[in-house]
Protein backbone atom coordinates (compact mmCIF):
# COMPACT_ATOMS: atom_id res chain seq x y z
CA UNK A 1 0.00 0.00 0.00
CA UNK A 2 1.23 3.43 -0.78
CA UNK A 3 2.39 5.67 2.03
CA UNK A 4 1.15 8.90 0.55
CA UNK A 5 -1.41 9.49 -2.12
CA UNK A 6 -2.17 12.87 -3.59
CA UNK A 7 -4.84 13.29 -6.24
CA UNK A 8 -5.43 16.50 -8.15
CA UNK A 9 -3.86 18.85 -5.63
CA UNK A 10 -4.51 22.54 -6.18
CA UNK A 11 -3.10 25.47 -4.23
CA UNK A 12 -4.74 28.82 -4.86
CA UNK A 13 -3.74 32.24 -3.62
CA UNK A 14 -6.26 35.05 -3.55
CA UNK A 15 -4.30 38.21 -4.37
CA UNK A 16 -5.17 41.80 -5.17
CA UNK A 17 -5.21 41.03 -8.87
CA UNK A 18 -7.39 37.93 -8.61
CA UNK A 19 -6.71 34.29 -7.88
CA UNK A 20 -3.34 32.79 -8.66
CA UNK A 21 -2.97 29.03 -8.88
CA UNK A 22 0.45 27.99 -7.64
CA UNK A 23 -0.33 24.29 -8.02
CA UNK A 24 -2.83 23.32 -10.70
CA UNK A 25 -3.73 19.68 -10.25
CA UNK A 26 -0.82 17.53 -9.14
CA UNK A 27 -1.24 13.80 -8.51
CA UNK A 28 1.30 11.30 -7.29
CA UNK A 29 1.66 8.32 -5.02
CA UNK A 30 4.62 7.52 -2.86
CA UNK A 31 5.67 4.24 -1.34
CA UNK A 32 8.73 3.65 0.79
CA UNK A 33 10.86 5.20 -1.90
CA UNK A 34 12.61 8.38 -2.84
CA UNK A 35 10.62 10.74 -4.99
CA UNK A 36 12.19 13.84 -6.48
CA UNK A 37 10.17 16.93 -7.36
CA UNK A 38 12.07 19.20 -9.71
CA UNK A 39 11.17 22.54 -11.11
CA UNK A 40 12.35 26.11 -11.53
CA UNK A 41 11.21 29.01 -9.39
CA UNK A 42 7.46 29.43 -9.57
CA UNK A 43 6.84 25.85 -10.62
CA UNK A 44 4.89 25.09 -7.45
CA UNK A 45 7.28 22.46 -6.15
CA UNK A 46 7.66 23.98 -2.70
CA UNK A 47 3.91 24.53 -2.35
CA UNK A 48 3.32 20.89 -3.27
CA UNK A 49 5.65 19.79 -0.48
CA UNK A 50 4.11 22.15 2.06
CA UNK A 51 0.57 21.12 1.13
CA UNK A 52 1.23 17.60 2.32
CA UNK A 53 1.76 19.00 5.82
CA UNK A 54 -0.96 21.61 5.26
CA UNK A 55 1.62 24.30 5.90
CA UNK A 56 0.24 26.81 3.39
CA UNK A 57 -0.64 30.08 5.05
CA UNK A 58 -3.68 32.14 4.15
CA UNK A 59 -4.47 33.65 1.66
CA UNK A 60 -3.31 30.33 0.24
CA UNK A 61 -5.92 27.60 -0.03
CA UNK A 62 -5.34 23.85 -0.46
CA UNK A 63 -7.82 21.74 -2.42
CA UNK A 64 -7.53 18.18 -3.66
CA UNK A 65 -9.69 15.28 -4.70
CA UNK A 66 -7.81 13.15 -2.19
CA UNK A 67 -4.75 13.43 0.00
CA UNK A 68 -4.10 10.47 2.28
CA UNK A 69 -1.10 9.54 4.36
CA UNK A 70 -0.92 5.96 5.61
CA UNK A 71 -4.71 5.63 5.25
CA UNK A 72 -5.45 8.94 6.98
CA UNK A 73 -7.28 11.73 5.26
CA UNK A 74 -5.00 14.75 5.39
CA UNK A 75 -7.55 17.09 3.84
CA UNK A 76 -10.11 16.75 6.58
CA UNK A 77 -7.87 16.03 9.54
CA UNK A 78 -8.26 18.54 12.36
CA UNK A 79 -5.43 20.95 13.10
CA UNK A 80 -4.76 18.90 16.24
CA UNK A 81 -4.36 15.69 14.26
CA UNK A 82 -2.08 17.48 11.82
CA UNK A 83 0.13 18.69 14.65
CA UNK A 84 0.44 15.11 15.82
CA UNK A 85 1.53 14.08 12.33
CA UNK A 86 3.98 16.88 11.72
CA UNK A 87 7.40 16.08 12.98
CA UNK A 88 6.33 12.79 14.49
CA UNK A 89 5.33 10.91 11.33
CA UNK A 90 6.19 13.38 8.59
CA UNK A 91 9.40 15.39 8.95
CA UNK A 92 10.48 18.40 6.95
CA UNK A 93 13.94 19.81 6.23
CA UNK A 94 14.05 23.33 4.81
CA UNK A 95 16.53 25.11 2.63
CA UNK A 96 18.47 27.23 5.07
CA UNK A 97 19.29 25.94 8.56
CA UNK A 98 19.89 29.56 9.63
CA UNK A 99 16.16 30.19 9.58
CA UNK A 100 14.95 26.85 10.88
CA UNK A 101 16.89 26.63 14.14
CA UNK A 102 16.03 28.79 17.12
CA UNK A 103 18.98 31.20 17.49
CA UNK A 104 18.69 31.62 21.27
CA UNK A 105 18.57 27.94 22.26
CA UNK A 106 21.45 25.48 22.31
CA UNK A 107 21.32 22.64 19.81
CA UNK A 108 21.05 20.18 22.67
CA UNK A 109 17.98 21.82 24.09
CA UNK A 110 16.30 22.02 20.70
CA UNK A 111 16.99 18.36 20.07
CA UNK A 112 15.87 17.07 23.44
CA UNK A 113 12.87 19.33 23.88
CA UNK A 114 10.61 17.25 21.67
CA UNK A 115 11.80 14.00 23.19
CA UNK A 116 11.11 15.15 26.71
CA UNK A 117 7.80 16.87 26.03
CA UNK A 118 6.33 14.50 23.50
CA UNK A 119 7.80 11.17 24.49
CA UNK A 120 8.20 11.93 28.18
CA UNK A 121 11.83 10.84 28.28
CA UNK A 122 14.09 11.75 31.19
CA UNK A 123 16.94 14.19 30.76
CA UNK A 124 19.71 11.65 30.43
CA UNK A 125 17.75 9.37 28.10
CA UNK A 126 16.84 12.30 25.89
CA UNK A 127 20.43 13.51 25.79
CA UNK A 128 21.71 10.05 24.92
CA UNK A 129 19.18 9.78 22.10
CA UNK A 130 20.03 13.23 20.79
CA UNK A 131 23.73 12.45 20.76
CA UNK A 132 23.03 9.21 18.94
CA UNK A 133 21.03 11.17 16.36
CA UNK A 134 23.89 13.63 15.86
CA UNK A 135 26.30 10.75 15.44
CA UNK A 136 23.96 9.22 12.87
CA UNK A 137 24.44 12.33 10.72
CA UNK A 138 28.21 11.88 11.15
CA UNK A 139 28.87 14.68 13.58
CA UNK A 140 31.96 13.52 15.36
CA UNK A 141 32.11 15.78 18.40
CA UNK A 142 28.40 15.46 19.20
CA UNK A 143 28.87 16.50 22.84
CA UNK A 144 30.34 19.85 21.80
CA UNK A 145 27.63 20.48 19.19
CA UNK A 146 24.97 19.82 21.84
CA UNK A 147 26.29 22.81 23.80
CA UNK A 148 26.61 25.08 20.78
CA UNK A 149 24.21 27.78 19.58
CA UNK A 150 23.14 27.72 15.94
CA UNK A 151 25.31 30.69 14.92
CA UNK A 152 28.39 28.80 16.10
CA UNK A 153 27.85 26.11 13.48
CA UNK A 154 28.76 26.17 9.80
CA UNK A 155 26.03 25.83 7.20
CA UNK A 156 26.73 22.18 6.55
CA UNK A 157 26.81 21.38 10.25
CA UNK A 158 23.55 23.29 10.80
CA UNK A 159 21.83 21.35 8.05
CA UNK A 160 23.03 18.06 9.54
CA UNK A 161 21.59 19.12 12.89
CA UNK A 162 18.29 19.87 11.15
CA UNK A 163 18.29 16.43 9.60
CA UNK A 164 19.13 14.83 12.92
CA UNK A 165 16.30 16.75 14.56
CA UNK A 166 13.85 15.57 11.95
CA UNK A 167 15.00 11.99 12.25
CA UNK A 168 14.77 11.65 16.03
CA UNK A 169 11.02 10.89 16.05
CA UNK A 170 11.70 8.33 13.27
CA UNK A 171 9.14 9.65 10.80
CA UNK A 172 7.78 7.51 7.99
CA UNK A 173 8.09 10.29 5.48
CA UNK A 174 10.67 13.03 5.15
CA UNK A 175 10.09 16.07 2.98
CA UNK A 176 13.35 17.80 2.11
CA UNK A 177 12.93 21.18 0.41
CA UNK A 178 16.20 22.18 -1.25
CA UNK A 179 18.13 20.78 1.72
CA UNK A 180 21.54 21.47 0.19
CA UNK A 181 21.06 24.57 -1.96
CA UNK A 182 22.52 26.91 0.63
CA UNK A 183 25.62 24.75 1.10
CA UNK A 184 29.01 24.56 -0.60
CA UNK A 185 29.38 21.83 -3.19
CA UNK A 186 31.78 19.65 -1.22
CA UNK A 187 29.55 19.87 1.86
CA UNK A 188 26.51 19.29 -0.32
CA UNK A 189 27.80 15.88 -1.36
CA UNK A 190 28.39 14.86 2.26
CA UNK A 191 24.97 15.95 3.47
CA UNK A 192 23.32 14.19 0.57
CA UNK A 193 25.07 10.92 1.18
CA UNK A 194 24.12 11.08 4.87
CA UNK A 195 20.50 11.68 3.94
CA UNK A 196 20.68 8.91 1.39
CA UNK A 197 22.07 6.39 3.88
CA UNK A 198 19.48 7.24 6.52
CA UNK A 199 16.56 6.94 4.15
CA UNK A 200 17.87 3.65 2.84
CA UNK A 201 18.56 2.15 6.28
CA UNK A 202 15.29 3.15 7.85
CA UNK A 203 13.08 2.52 4.86
CA UNK A 204 11.58 5.98 5.00
CA UNK A 205 9.65 7.63 2.23
CA UNK A 206 11.42 10.73 0.94
CA UNK A 207 10.21 13.67 -1.09
CA UNK A 208 13.23 15.54 -2.32
CA UNK A 209 12.40 18.97 -3.70
CA UNK A 210 15.05 20.73 -5.75
CA UNK A 211 15.71 22.94 -8.75
CA UNK A 212 18.67 20.77 -9.73
CA UNK A 213 17.53 18.01 -12.04
CA UNK A 214 20.86 16.22 -12.14
CA UNK A 215 21.22 16.18 -8.38
CA UNK A 216 17.72 14.81 -7.95
CA UNK A 217 18.24 12.19 -10.63
CA UNK A 218 21.29 10.89 -8.88
CA UNK A 219 19.56 10.73 -5.58
CA UNK A 220 15.99 9.57 -6.18
CA UNK A 221 14.15 6.60 -7.60
CA UNK A 222 11.52 8.57 -9.42
CA UNK A 223 11.33 12.18 -10.56
CA UNK A 224 8.35 14.48 -11.05
CA UNK A 225 9.19 17.43 -13.26
CA UNK A 226 6.99 20.43 -12.51
CA UNK A 227 6.41 23.53 -14.58
CA UNK A 228 3.94 26.33 -13.82
CA UNK A 229 2.04 24.27 -11.26
CA UNK A 230 1.68 21.16 -13.39
CA UNK A 231 3.59 17.90 -13.54
CA UNK A 232 4.90 17.82 -17.07
CA UNK A 233 6.67 14.50 -16.78
CA UNK A 234 7.08 11.62 -14.36
CA UNK A 235 10.06 9.43 -15.02
CA UNK A 236 12.27 6.79 -13.44
CA UNK A 237 15.50 8.52 -12.45
CA UNK A 238 17.58 5.87 -14.21
CA UNK A 239 15.84 6.66 -17.47
CA UNK A 240 16.11 10.41 -17.16
CA UNK A 241 18.26 10.64 -20.23
CA UNK A 242 15.36 9.26 -22.26
CA UNK A 243 12.98 11.97 -21.08
CA UNK A 244 10.38 12.85 -23.68
CA UNK A 245 8.98 16.18 -22.60
CA UNK A 246 10.75 19.15 -24.18
CA UNK A 247 10.85 20.97 -20.84
CA UNK A 248 12.65 18.10 -19.10
CA UNK A 249 15.05 17.78 -21.98
CA UNK A 250 15.63 21.50 -21.99
CA UNK A 251 16.40 21.51 -18.27
CA UNK A 252 18.84 18.65 -18.71
CA UNK A 253 20.70 20.18 -21.60
CA UNK A 254 20.93 23.79 -20.57
CA UNK A 255 23.52 23.19 -17.85
CA UNK A 256 27.15 23.57 -18.81
CA UNK A 257 29.34 20.51 -18.29
CA UNK A 258 33.00 20.29 -17.43
CA UNK A 259 34.87 19.57 -20.62
CA UNK A 260 31.72 20.20 -22.63
CA UNK A 261 31.46 22.18 -25.82
CA UNK A 262 31.90 25.94 -25.71
CA UNK A 263 29.20 26.46 -28.26
CA UNK A 264 26.24 28.44 -26.94
CA UNK A 265 24.26 26.40 -24.43
CA UNK A 266 20.91 25.11 -25.67
CA UNK A 267 18.15 27.25 -24.21
CA UNK A 268 14.57 26.37 -23.42
CA UNK A 269 12.04 27.24 -26.03
CA UNK A 270 9.50 28.71 -23.65
CA UNK A 271 6.91 29.15 -26.34
CA UNK A 272 6.75 25.38 -26.86
CA UNK A 273 4.63 24.53 -23.83
Amino acid sequence: MSLLEVRNLRVTFATETGEVQAVRGVSFTLGHERLGIVGESGSGKTMTGRSVLRLVRPPGRIEADAMTFDGRDLLHASEREMRALRGKRIGMVMQDPKYSLNPVMTIGRQLTEGLRLRDGLGRSDATAKAIAALEAVQIRDAARVMEAYPHELSGGMGQRVMIAMMLIPEPDLLIADEPTSALDVTVQAEVLSILDGLVRDRGMGLIFISHDLRLVARFCDRVLVMHKGLVVEEIEAAHLMEAQHPYTKGLLNCLPRIGGSRAPLPVLDRAGF
Binding site: A217, R218, A238
Partner: peptide, 19 residues
Amino acid sequence: RSLFDASADRMLDASTEPT
Protein backbone atom coordinates in the same frame (compact mmCIF):
# COMPACT_ATOMS: atom_id res chain seq x y z
CA ARG B 1 40.02 17.36 -7.10
CA SER B 2 37.38 17.24 -4.38
CA LEU B 3 35.72 20.30 -5.93
CA PHE B 4 35.85 18.59 -9.29
CA ASP B 5 34.34 15.38 -7.94
CA ALA B 6 31.57 17.23 -6.14
CA SER B 7 30.40 19.14 -9.20
CA ALA B 8 26.82 18.35 -9.97
CA ASP B 9 27.36 17.17 -13.49
CA ARG B 10 29.96 14.64 -12.37
CA MET B 11 27.36 13.23 -10.00
CA LEU B 12 24.99 12.46 -12.82
CA ASP B 13 27.58 10.39 -14.63
CA ALA B 14 27.77 8.15 -11.60
CA SER B 15 24.05 7.65 -11.49
CA THR B 16 23.33 7.01 -15.14
CA GLU B 17 25.25 3.80 -14.86
CA PRO B 18 22.73 1.12 -13.94
CA THR B 19 22.60 0.66 -10.19
